[in-house]
Design a protein around this nucleic acid. Structure first.
Length: 512
RNA sequence: GCCGCGUUGGUCAAGAGGUUAAGACGCCUCCCUUUCACGGAGGAAUCACGGGUUCGAGUCCCGUACGUGGUACCA
C-alpha cells in the first residue's frame, strides 16, 4: 500500500441482502476487516439494497448475525451509524440523482427511453453467432431512443410526460482505461468494448455502478476490496470517478480472487451436492423455504472458519497455518493475496476445525457442547464432570457435533454394542474373567484408575489371559464400540455402579 | 463469440533467474497405543504446452491450450 498516511484508512463491505452469506463473501469481509484493523482504520458495513425486486426479509439481520459469529464488528453500519450515514443505499436514494444529472450536463451520460421490449428487440436483431450478446454501446446507441438521438424538444417533452427513462453512461471512444489494482497491478480495458451501463434505473434507484462510486466517495473509502467478478465492470467505475470526483480521490482497488467449488465458482448447490456448508450460518429462503446449511451449525468454530478462509487466497510466507484473528491482523498483507482463485477443500477445512478444537480450552468448548447435548436431550450431570469428559475427548472431535458420539456413553449406557467385535474370540475363560471381575470390582475400596487397572490386570494374570485381549471386550461393554479414551479412565469416570451394570448387561448380550 | 483475469503435486501453497522445487491437507507404510484419536518416522505425487531471451528459466517475453469471471434497468 501507499505510505500516504495523511488520510485515514476506511474500507467497506457492501453486500446486497438477498440471501445467505457464502464463503467468498465472508472472506471479502475478512480481508477488509484485517486490512482496516492492521492500519488502525475503520471497517464499514454498507447495505446495497438498490434492487427492490430482490428484497429478502431477514437477509440483513442474517448478515449482522454472521459477522457477529465471526467476531467481526463493523465500526460503522446501519445498526451503528457513524457520520457518513445512512448506511443503506435505499435510504440514500436522493443522493445519487444529482450526480447523474451532473454527468448528463457534462455530456458523459444520457437519458435513454428504451423500453424493455425495445432492448429485447435490439438484442435479438443484432444477435449473430459471432456476437451472441449485443451490447448497448457506441455502435448501436445512435439507433435507440435516447437523448443522444432525440431532439432536445422531444426529450424535454418525454421528461415532462413522465415517460420512464434510465440514465446511461456514455462510454468514450478509442480510449484505454487502465488502473492499478493492488492485487492484479496494471489492468486495462478498451473503452470501445465496454457498453453504456445503466447508472440510474427507471425507478430512480441507482445501479451498483453509480452507487458504489458515489458512496465510496461520500463515505471517504480509501481502499475498496471486492470479488474478482467485479473486475470487468471496473472501467465503468474508473470513468465515473474521473468524471465525478477525480481519479486522485479514488480508492485503491483490490479485486480478490474467487473461491471455487469442485467445478467452477462455488455455489450453494455445490454444498448440497458434495455435503459441505457454503454459508456461514444456516439460511432458509423465506420465499422458497429452501434451506442451506451453515458452517456454524455444521459444527465449526468461528476461529477455525476465519482461519481457513484467511488461508484461501493468502499466505503469510511462513510455515504457520494456524492463526488467531489477532495474529492475522498483525501479519496480513494485501501484497501476499494471490491472483488466482482457490478451490475450496472441505477436508482441509475440517482439519482446521480439528486443530482449533484441540487448541480451544475446555472452558470455551463447554457452552457449545452443552448446547449440543441439550438438543439431544441428554442429561449431562454436573458441570465439572462434563468438563472432564470434554477434555478427554476433544482431540478426537473434528466438528463440534462429533462430541455427541464421542462422549454420550459417559452419560448414558450405550444403546447398541458392537458384539461382533468380541464374539469371535469369546470363550468360557473370558466369560469367567468378567464374572469374577465384577465381584472383585464390587469389593474394591477406592474407585480410582490405578486400583481398577491393577484389579483388572491381576485377575488377567491369574486367568492367564493377556490383558490386551480383555481390554477390547471391556471397552465394547462400556463404550459400545472401538473408540474413546483409555478404558480404565472411562470406568473410573462413569462410576462403579454404572461400570458393573454395563459389564453385566453386556455379558448377557454377548451370550445371546 | 467478444473482453478481463488466471495457470507450481488431487487440494491449499512457498518460490520474486542458479534450490535435491519448502510446508500443510488428503492418500499409503511403519512406530506409539493390544480401541479410536493424538503424536512420531517414512512414501507416492507437481512447475499446462510450444517457442523465444539468457551461460542458466517454475521464475522474464510471445503464442497456444485450459480454467474462470463479465457480457442485465442483479449485485
Amino acid at each position: 500500500m501507499n505510505e500516504n498516511n495523511e488520510s485515514k484508512i476506511r474500507v467497506r463491505f457492501a453486500p446486497s441482502p438477498t440471501g445467505g452469506l457464502h464463503l467468498g463473501g465472508v472472506r471479502t469481509v475478512l480481508y477488509n476487516y484485517l486490512f482496516a484493523k492492521k492500519y488502525n482504520g475503520s471497517f464499514i458495513l454498507r447495505i446495497e439494497d438498490t434492487d427492490q425486486s430482490r428484497f429478502v426479509a431477514g437477509a440483513e439481520e442474517y448478515i449482522y448475525n454472521c459477522l457477529k459469529w465471526c467476531g467481526i464488528e463493523p465500526d460503522e453500519s446501519p445498526e451503528k451509524p457513524g457520520s457518513y450515514g445512512p448506511y443503506r443505499q435505499s435510504e440514500r436514494k436522493e443522493m445519487y440523482r444529482k450526480y447523474a444529472d451532473q454527468l448528463i450536463q457534462n455530456g458523459q451520460a444520457y437519458y435513454a427511453f428504451d423500453t424493455t421490449e425495445d432492448l429485447e428487440k435490439m438484442r435479438s436483431e443484432n444477435k449473430t453467432d459471432d456476437n451472441p450478446s449485443p451490447q448497448y454501446d457506441s455502435r448501436i446507441r445512435m439507433k435507440m431512443q435516447n437523448s443522444l438521438v432525440l431532439t432536445n424538444e422531444v426529450v424535454q417533452q418525454y421528461l415532462q410526460e413522465g415517460k420512464p427513462y434510465v440514465v446511461r453512461i456514455k462510454m468514450p471512444e478509442n480510449e484505454i482505461i487502465s488502473f492499478n489494482d493492488m492485487i492484479h497491478h496494471e489492468v486495462s480495458f478498451e473503452s470501445n468494448l465496454v457498453d453504456d451501463k445503466v447508472l440510474l434505473k427507471a425507478d430512480g434507484m441507482p445501479t451498483y455502478h453509480l452507487a458504489v462510486v458515489v458512496d465510496d466517495y461520500l463515505m471517504k473509502i480509501s481502499h475498496a476490496f471486492r470479488g474478482e467478478e467485479w473486475l470487468s465492470s471496473a472501467p465503468v467505475h474508473i470513468l465515473l470517478w474521473k468524471y465525478l470526483f477525480g481519479l486522485e480521490n479514488m480508492p485503491q482497488w483490490a479485486h480478490l480472487p474467487l473461491i471455487l467449488g469442485p467445478n467452477g465458482k462455488l455455489s450453494k448447490r455445490d454444498g448440497a451436492k458434495f455435503g459441505f456448508p457454503v454459508y456461514a450460518m444456516n439460511w432458509t429462503d423465506p420465499r422458497s423455504e429452501e434451506f442451506t446449511e451453515g458452517f456454524k451449525e455444521k459444527g465449526f468454530l468461528p476461529e477455525a472458519f476465519i482461519n481457513l478462509l484467511a488461508m484461501l487466497g493468502w499466505n503469510g510466507g511462513t510455515e504457520q497455518e494456524l492463526f488467531s484473528m489477532e495474529e492475522l491482523i498483525a501479519q496480513f498483507s494485501i501484497e501476499r493475496v494471490h491472483k488466482s482463485g482457490a478451490k475450496f477443500d472441505y477436508e482441509k477445512a475440517k482439519w482446521f476445525n480439528h486443530e482449533w478444537i484441540k487448541k480451544s480450552s475446555t472452558e470455551a468448548l463447554y457452552p457449545l457442547v452443552k448446547n449440543l447435548f441439550e438438543t439431544k436431550n441428554v442429561d449431562t450431570k454436573n458441570e465439572d464432570y462434563f468438563k472432564t469428559v470434554i477434555g478427554l475427548v476433544k482431540e478426537r472431535c473434528t466438528l463440534i457435533s462429533d462430541f455427541y458420539e464421542q462422549s454420550v456413553y459417559f452419560f448414558e449406557a450405550p444403546q447398541t454394542l458392537d458384539v461382533e467385535a468380541v464374539k469371535p474370540k469369546w470363550n468360557e475363560n473370558k466369560q469367567s474373567f468378567f464374572e469374577i471381575l465384577c465381584t472383585q470390582l464390587t469389593e474394591l475400596k477406592a474407585w480410582d484408575v490405578i486400583e481398577i487397572e491393577n484389579c483388572f490386570k491381576n485377575l488377567a494374570t491369574e486367568k492367564t489371559i493377556k490383558p490386551g485381549e480383555l481390554q477390547l471386550p471391556m471397552r465394547i461393554m462400556l463404550v459400545g464400540g472401538k473408540f474413546g479414551p483409555a478404558v480404565f479412565e472411562i470406568a473410573h469416570l462413569i462410576g462403579k455402579e454404572e461400570t458393573l451394570n454395563r459389564i453385566q448387561s453386556a455379558l448377557t448380550k454377548i451370550n445371546n
